[in-house]
Design a protein around this nucleic acid. Sequence first.
DNA 1: CGCGGCAACTGGTTAATACCACTCTATCCA
DNA 2: TGGATAGAGTGGTATTAACCAGTTGCCGCG
Lengths: 240, 240
Amino acid sequence: MRAGLKRDRVRDFLLDFIADKRPGEAIPSERDLCKELGVSRPTLRAAIDDLVRSGLLVREHGRGTFTGPHRVTQALAATAGGSFYAPPAEGHWLSRILEFGLAPAGPQLATRLRLAPADAVLRVVRLRIVDDEPMAIERIQLPGALVEGLVPADMESGSFYRLLRERFGVDVRSAVQTIEATVTDETEAELLGVPQHFPALGVERTTRDAEGRIVEFVRSIYRGDRYRVTSELHFDADSG
Amino acid sequence: MRAGLKRDRVRDFLLDFIADKRPGEAIPSERDLCKELGVSRPTLRAAIDDLVRSGLLVREHGRGTFTGPHRVTQALAATAGGSFYAPPAEGHWLSRILEFGLAPAGPQLATRLRLAPADAVLRVVRLRIVDDEPMAIERIQLPGALVEGLVPADMESGSFYRLLRERFGVDVRSAVQTIEATVTDETEAELLGVPQHFPALGVERTTRDAEGRIVEFVRSIYRGDRYRVTSELHFDADSG
DNA sequence: CGCGGCAACTGGTTAATACCACTCTATCCA
DNA sequence: TGGATAGAGTGGTATTAACCAGTTGCCGCG
């Protein structure tokens, strides 16, 4: 059965609506949208709240709701090896595929990916290598239906997101990423070529496409001595 | 004056409530809390939603709502002009000032802060404490001219940025932040109450005001078991 | 002609209520 | 004794209905 949540239906409608607009344009008033979409205002507002939280819309009390400032490209970049800025999964990285296979999602992963527990999930584990030195272990899990025909060699070089876009028509749009400190366990240490209990960054990322569908769930571990994350933060200008 | 929003009142109540709990403990059911606090369920749920988004609570359909894994998650807004997510536990942080004093910048720091080497720099080292447990060591360095009259007590609680804005007219606007994996040294371990060589996050931040002047340079170390960073990334909607 | 104030918008908050979906448990029947 | 089942409890979604609080612009009065 389709999820069929009204909130999602409304959010999708708004996403389409926004797509045609330039930054700063107004969307119809909440009450008008309610009538047009046949939903209640709380429901509509819940949908708008989501888009406001992700920065696609901006509310202004007493004036209206507007499409957000032009989206930030690459709001977060990582420095590899210490000196240069590169998007995490772009450029001259190489990968050694350690695991590649389909399996049922199971209850936990099904929840994360918003799938049914029986749906197929592609699980890829790869060792990411820069300048002949292992840098990270990446465990990717994504809906099997999304990438039918994907083979291991596809994931050995190049940008995975570009591949998703150009070959599978998946429009990667946003991600929520969590970074934490950890240390390597025995297996990880061996693969990364560092001592056991070596400092490392654990990164979890959930990625969504333009329709809000979850595209991938990734859990990675990066060598602490060769990877760091730089982000640029912007604060609101409100009067406070 | 207090905002007086019921939602905020409820959120504060829940924060206090959570403070006493160990990770994974259940909170009363939504319906019970409604009765106890005298608010409607939508209002209560709005408050809980906030805490769930910040990771302090976890909902489980059909079972209940539980305190999250015991960690403080700081969400970073990655959208320009978008909403700024304050650290969730804002009001509950305390600080023990370890060092507080003016000194000439010196050559290196002068470069970082864009000052002359002879200019005064205020250096503050503080131990940040959440729920009576040490969480981080923060070494703040900022131009002395910016905060004349600042005393140690000012930095023991509350939001430093709000203080900068309201008392010193400094309009904090953007920051560049770098996160890396590290481990505690002897001193840090003792202050944080963890073993030596314990996993930790090293964070460096350079903060600017609306005019682009550098407001502060901060180097912090956070306990890896109690802190993580969440950011929301947005990619361009452009075709191509 | 200029200015003040009153509508008529806008989003912001809260309420009361209904029903759905999931989890657990206690009970009942085979 | 064991497994199926019904019920009670939980969070999840959606509705209707008010009222509050900023913003804007029109219109009438000075």
